[in-house]
Computed example of a mutant assay.
Amino acid sequence: MSASSSSDILARFEKLVRRRAVSSDPAWRMESGEGFLRALGPSPSPFDNSLCWAHTDEENVEAVIAAQMAYFRSLGRAFMWKVYTQDSPSDLETRLLRAGFEVQAHVTLVVLDTARSQPATALPPGVEIRRVDDATGLAAAMKVQEVVWSQDCQWLHDALKEELRTQPDTLSIFVGWSEGRPVCSSWIRIEEGAPFASLWGGSVLPDFRGRGFYRAMVAARAEVARQRDIAHLYVEAGDMSRPILERLGFQALSQVAKCIYRPPGVA
């Protein structure tokens, strides 16, 4: 991917994904004003509330930070502010930390041209990756997530169940099975009206890593995107998944700091 094509894709991502002021999910409300876009979800969690984008510069940044903190504090909600490499000013992350935010994670925004063919992945005998859309399949997907992340994923189960019910055309969940046992899971979300789809949840049980499961899940989801004429897949990749994704043809577009603000008394 050339520098010019990377900048073009990033510009489209900014316009069509990050600054997209609509949500097809009735549980979410988008709020826009002069120079900002917010998303409010069904709970006070910072994973359900975010400042999607804000116009900040050297002159207004402190006022914007204070205004957004005050707004979410008035609602009794925590929220996430994702800081991208291209955001201004260059020390925005430092300013957020000074204001009381904490960094939940540093990730890399990587993107794949879906026209690029994926290398064949030979899975061991008795193994298959398949799409699930029923209660049994969703439970299997969440069982993997709970083991990998060592946490209760009931909230995620409930959210994905509702999303499957209300938006079955934009969400596809995959589970990998080895001799009838769920060993990996992941999902893909289609961005309606945009040439992008996002990959989420790619998790493999520790004993089954290094056998091609992760690559096979990427290939399965890439095929969903190609069938829908989606030009680009994107992932917020952590340190473990980024090398695998880059070997599959994903290219880094931006570094992202996930900054969280929790008002006093909000978990």
Rank of each mutant, 00 (worst) to 15 (best):
E62Y: 04
G202A: 14
E192S: 13
K15P: 00
A105F: 09
I173Q: 04
I9A: 04
S241E: 07
T166S: 14
G212Y: 00
G212N: 01
G238I: 06
F213N: 05
R12Q: 13
G210D: 03
G126P: 00
P124G: 05
G202K: 01
I244E: 00
G201V: 02
A3K: 13
S198N: 08
E223G: 04
R262F: 09
T121R: 10
L199I: 15
S45Y: 05
A67E: 14
A257C: 05
A105D: 14
D169Y: 07
W177G: 00
A197F: 03
S45I: 04
V83G: 00
T114L: 08
L248Q: 08
R73V: 07
D8M: 13
W155L: 14
F196L: 06
M240E: 15
S5C: 09
I188K: 01
S241F: 00
R20H: 11
E163N: 14
S6E: 12
A66D: 13
S172V: 07
P263R: 03
G202L: 07
A27W: 08
Q255F: 10
V144E: 01
I244R: 01
I244V: 12
R242I: 02
S43W: 09
A159K: 12
P125G: 02
W28A: 11
W155I: 12
Y71M: 08
R211N: 09
S32T: 12
Q104L: 13
D91G: 00
F196N: 02
H232S: 10
A54L: 09
I129R: 05
V266K: 03
W187A: 13
L245V: 06
A63D: 13
A39P: 02
A237Y: 01
P46L: 00
G137P: 00
R19H: 07
E192W: 07
S150L: 15
K258A: 14
P125L: 03
Y84D: 04
A11K: 11
A220S: 08
I190Q: 14
P243A: 04
R189W: 10
L10C: 04
I190M: 11
E236P: 00
E102L: 12
